[in-house]
């Protein structure tokens, strides 16, 4: 699948934004983060900026962005519509939580729980947009949505730790949780890659045209001399060696390095923790964008078998 930057940015940024909202709520509930004005302003500000920026970027993917409001209507059948509805709905408790936090320096557990629930639901819906498509084997995989969820929580956690360090608060336990999430994401991603590599590619040109019963089928003449929309959008494929290099980048730079840096910050001399936390955020951002690029670039659409692909 063609890796569109608008969609890569949307899923990574809004994922991290919802993850950060989950962490701010959870840290508040655990009493690990007092509702102070400045911290609240920057932390919620960043979360909303990530989500809002992601949503803006996703509308850049649309042919008719001015009609985007229509996407709220089909939540009965469409995961994309559900995601839109949930994304907006989660702004209600999250916004109220932020207003209480920033203007009244007070914390409402009920709003925090609602924020956590709706944020998780939104990220779940994002994952299901992809996982529900039977046409793309690499996405129609039960690990896709769990990975979206764990990555959102892990990336939100790394950003939340930066705020804890900036406010010079206790970060030992939250660090352990974030490390566990990063390692869980790495393990899930690893087994996802192993899974898609060994999956049987059962769709062939013979099966897709129904002509396989008469012998091996290969495309002789393409319907068009230059790539059409279907080929541009669905025909993208990334070389095996290149993909392996990028997988290692995503895994080591995006997940394991931030975990190590977070672990290091627990023993680092006072004053250096914030630098380590910032470094962890930067490495993670780079690695996760790589991961998301690969998520699209490695996904093979079944339509390619009509266009000469061996199998999908």
């Amino acid at each position: 699948m063609h890796p569109a930057y608008s969609v890569i940015l949307f899923t990574t940024m809004s994922g991290a934004g919802y993850g950060l909202l989950i962490w701010l709520s959870a840290l508040g509930l655990a009493g690990a983060l007092p509702p102070t004005r400045t911290l609240g302003f920057f932390a919620f500000g960043l979360a909303f900026a990530l989500i809002g920026g992601g949503l803006m970027s996703s509308t850049a993917h649309l042919g008719r962005p001015e009609r985007a409001w229509r996407a709220f209507s089909q939540w009965r059948s469409s995961w994309l519509s559900r995601e839109g509805v949930l994304a907006v709905a989660s702004f209600v408790p999250a916004g109220l939580l932020a207003i209480n936090w920033i203007f009244y320096e007070s914390f409402s557990p009920a709003l925090a729980w609602a924020t956590i629930a709706l944020s998780l639901a939104t990220v779940y819906a994002t994952g299901m947009i992809y996982q529900s498509l039977p046409t793309i084997r690499a996405w129609h995989n039960p690990l896709v949505t769990p990975i979206y969820l764990v990555l959102a929580i892990a990336t939100g956690g790394v950003i939340a730790l930066f705020f804890l360090r900036a406010a010079e608060l206790q970060a030992a336990r939250p660090s352990l949780v974030a490390i566990a999430m990063l390692l869980a994401a790495a393990a899930l991603k690893w087994s996802y890659w192993t899974g898609i590599d060994s999956a049987q590619r059962t769709y062939t040109a013979g099966a897709a045209t129904g002509l396989g019963q008469f012998g091996k089928v290969r495309m002789l003449i393409s319907p068009h001399s230059t790539a059409n929309y279907v080929m541009r959008e669905m025909g993208y494929s990334v070389g095996r060696r290149h993909a392996n290099k990028l997988r290692r980048t995503a895994l080591w730079v995006g997940l394991i390095a931030p975990a190590l840096l977070t672990a290091l910050s627990l023993y680092a001399p006072a004053g250096t923790e914030i630098a380590l936390a910032l470094l962890a955020v930067a490495a993670m951002a780079f690695g996760i964008i790589t991961e998301r690029w690969l998520f699209f670039a490695e996904a093979e659409h079944v339509v390619n078998v009509y266009y000469g692909a061996e199998a999908a």
């Binding site: 042919g63 985007a68 229509r70 996407a71 339509v303």
Partner: peptide, 18 residues
């Protein structure tokens, strides 16, 4: 139609063109 292209991803037969 908002041109989100998701339907074309969902079609196995490449029948939708943006």
């Amino acid at each position: 139609c908002i041109g989100c292209k998701l339907c074309s991803w969902a079609c196995p037969y490449g029948a939708r063109e943006y």
